[in-house]
């Protein structure tokens, strides 16, 4: 799985309330919800994001609520991958379960700048900043988790058993 696109850069502790504010959670419709992705900290995100674009953030991305709507709206907006220094554990789990590619890489999160063009190979963890020419290696997922992702998410992996 690969993605290539422009970078949207965010700070540490991006919480699920700013990814998708709870005031919109009276629906489970992903397309409806996606219209409000990131609007409380980046009102321009939804109109500017293009398929394959990449979010790059600091520590503890996705902290707060367990709402699966958070990784779901990021994915529905067309985001190809989220790179962060670390992820909050429920967001990490949800992203795997719904098939949103995520990678943890401190150096990439420090050095890649907003607007850079990057390519990400999710299978190998190789991140390439095409604007600066630098490459970064993220830790690949454990096999157990790769198996879930390759089967298309948690429920698809269970259905196969």
């Amino acid at each position: 799985m690969k993605t290539q696109g422009h970078v949207f850069k965010y700070p540490d502790n991006v919480d699920t309330d700013v990814i998708i504010p709870a005031r919109y959670l009276n629906t489970a419709d992903a397309n409806e919800l996606a219209k409000h992705c990131m609007e409380d900290i980046d009102a321009g995100f939804v109109s500017q994001v293009r398929p394959g674009d990449v979010m790059v953030a600091g520590w503890n991305f996705g902290c707060g609520s367990s709402r699966e709507h958070a990784p779901l709206v990021i994915k529905t907006c067309g985001t190809g991958c989220v790179i962060a220094k670390s992820f909050a554990r429920i967001f990490y789990r949800n992203a795997i379960n719904i098939g949103l590619p995520i990678l943890e890489c401190e150096a990439a999160a420090d050095e890649i700048q907003a607007g850079d063009r990057v390519s990400v190979d999710f299978d190998t963890g190789l991140i390439r900043d095409l604007t600066t020419g630098k490459t970064y290696q993220a830790e690949p997922f454990p096999e157990f988790i790769q198996a879930i992702i390759q089967k298309g998410g948690l429920l698809a992996s269970l259905a196969e058993v």
């Binding site: 367990s66 699966e68 990784p71 429920i90 948690l154």
Partner: peptide, 13 residues
């Protein structure tokens, strides 16, 4: 705490 997909899998299995 987990997400809704984990809840769905938990309810089923």
């Amino acid at each position: 705490g987990v997400g809704s997909t984990d809840m769905a899998a938990g309810m089923a299995t």
